[in-house]
Each structure stands twice: as structure tokens, then as C-alpha cells.
């Protein structure tokens, strides 16, 4: 999963897509995941980091990850 290259993200959780002009605000969990994605870390590795650091089980994270992917697609933020 790759974010489009020109997507700007800030630490406060703001996302700006300069090719569509859309802005988004991310909750801290989403902001952290986006930061990892931008660094090129693999999905599996990100999930591992989240599972180690946060109080969540793998099945819940899987479901939320899929939902998050839909949100990113919906927001036109992913490379096809």
C-alpha cells in the first residue's frame, strides 16, 4: 500500500492532497500509521508495531485496517 507521492501530512494529523485540493484530519492512530506508510514500512511490519504498542488484538486490527484502507481509497490518497 502506497500513499500518493505528493500527499502532505503533518504531525498534528493534517493531510493535504494537492492534486485534488482536499484536506483531511486524522486521529492519532491514523496519523501514526500514515507516518509509517510514508516511511515505506510494510503493512505487516506496521501492524506488528501497532499490536506491540497498543491494546488491540490482531483480528480487530485487521478489520479496522481494511476499513482504513477504504477510507484512504475514498479520499483518493492511495497509489492505484
Amino acid at each position: 500500500m502506497n500513499l500518493k507521492k505528493n500527499i502532505a501530512t503533518s504531525e498534528a494529523g493534517f493531510i493535504f492532497n494537492p492534486s485534488t485540493g482536499d484536506s483531511f484530519s486524522a486521529n492519532p492512530m491514523a496519523a501514526e500509521i500514515l507516518m509509517h506508510i510514508k516511511q515505506g514500512i510494510s503493512i505487516e511490519a506496521i501492524k506488528k508495531i501497532v499490536l506491540e504498542k497498543y491494546d488491540v488484538d490482531a483480528s480487530q486490527l485487521d478489520r479496522d485496517w481494511d476499513d482504513f484502507t477504504i477510507q484512504l481509497k475514498e479520499g483518493n490518497l492511495l497509489e492505484n
Binding site: D22, S23, A30, Y54, D55, F68, Q71
Partner: peptide
């Protein structure tokens, strides 16, 4: 102690 988890979520600013 693990941190409190919340679903990742983005919201479009309209």
C-alpha cells in the same frame, strides 16, 4: 502497559 487503541480514522474537512 499497552496504550489505549482507537480505530484509525480520517475525516475530510468540508
Amino acid at each position: 502497559q499497552k496504550l489505549r487503541y482507537e480505530k484509525p480514522f480520517i475525516q475530510k474537512m468540508n
